[in-house]
């Protein structure tokens, strides 16, 4: 079971390590996702845009759960693995995107909820 980072014997009032930086990065990451989504849906992004989505998702997947956001972490992991498997299997960008688009929507919802906290 993944433990929340606040379980790590930190002083009770100590800020959760990485949380402030994670929050700072939410807006630029949401904007980056939106612009990549536009590019892919217009057909101008190609596989490079999908790899950029993987890169951002990978970072979120690696840190979200210990910050208290396991849902966002799971969505990001699913996006990362779905795109990587699709690209490795030689699927088309459009085909991969059909699977990934609703997952990205869910991740963006998670990110916006965190912003609203």
């Amino acid at each position: 079971m993944q433990r929340h980072i606040s379980d790590w014997e930190l002083p009770p009032d100590a800020p959760v390590p990485g949380l402030a930086r994670f929050r700072e990065l939410l807006v630029p990451r949401i904007l980056a996702f939106e612009s990549l989504r536009l590019a892919i849906e217009k057909g101008s992004g190609g596989a490079a845009a999908l790899r950029d989505v993987v890169e951002i998702s990978h970072k979120i997947a690696g840190v979200a759960a210990p910050l208290g956001y396991p849902g966002a972490g799971d969505h990001a992991t699913t996006i990362e693995t779905t795109i990587q498997r699709g690209l490795a299997a030689g699927e088309t960008v459009a085909g991969i995107w059909r699977s990934v688009s609703p997952m990205l929507e869910a991740l963006l919802d998670d990110m916006e909820c965190i912003l609203d906290e």
């Binding site: 014997e9 930190l10 390590p17 990485g18 840190v63």
Partner: peptide
């Protein structure tokens, strides 16, 4: 390359 992760690992190692 992720500064958030570096902050987490610093805290984890310190603990």
């Amino acid at each position: 390359d992720d500064p958030v992760f570096l902050e987490q690992i610093l805290a984890g190692l310190a603990a």
